[in-house]
């Protein structure tokens, strides 16, 4: 897979506190906020039918299944983290065309969600949404 630029955010999983209390362990059954993991929008036909990145013109999201490794690079600071697939997501088509920027660097469309442990390794959690590059890890 060639590197894909887009937006990265974070999500909780593993039934932790607050609104994450019923988050569950994800499509792969292994997801936990404290692990280096991510959600990927094309883990199965069923997953892809929900996330539909193609509706946003993002067609480079190869089919990858639980445990596959991707690297995510924060385009704001160059920090990189390698994680494995634990869930289906993000729902790209809900935010078609959305853009995240830092300084003069921008990227469009949500292509990956990281766990809090992974996201906080490359950015502050309160940043919420940042431009990134995703590649095979």
């Amino acid at each position: 897979m060639a590197g894909v630029n887009g937006e990265v955010s974070w999500f909780c999983c593993g039934n932790s506190w607050g609104p994450c209390g019923s988050a569950g362990t994800g499509a792969c059954g292994t997801c936990h906020s404290g692990k280096f993991q991510h959600a990927w929008p094309n883990t199965s036909d069923a997953c892809y039918s929900i996330t539909r990145p193609d509706r946003c013109g993002v067609t480079a999201m190869s089919r990858r299944t639980c445990g596959f490794r991707h690297s995510t690079t924060n385009l704001c600071n160059g920090a990189r983290v390698v994680t494995s697939i634990a869930d289906c997501g993000p729902q790209t088509d809900l935010f078609c065309g959305e853009r995240a920027c830092c300084g003069g660097t921008c990227a469009s469309n949500r292509i990956i969600d990281l766990t809090p442990a992974a996201f906080s390794a490359i950015a502050s959690l309160n940043a919420g949404l940042i431009p990134c590059s995703v590649n095979v890890g």
């Binding site: 292994t30 692990k35 490794r69 920090a79 990189r80 390698v82 809090p116 390794a121 502050s124 309160n126």
Partner: peptide
């Protein structure tokens, strides 16, 4: 926080808990 995220060596393997993180 932003200053602490410059590239650093990845400690845990992908899929594993990060010992330097707590939830």
């Amino acid at each position: 926080p932003e200053t602490a995220f410059a590239a650093r060596a990845q400690l845990p393997e992908p899929g594993q808990p990060d010992p330097n993180f707590a939830e």
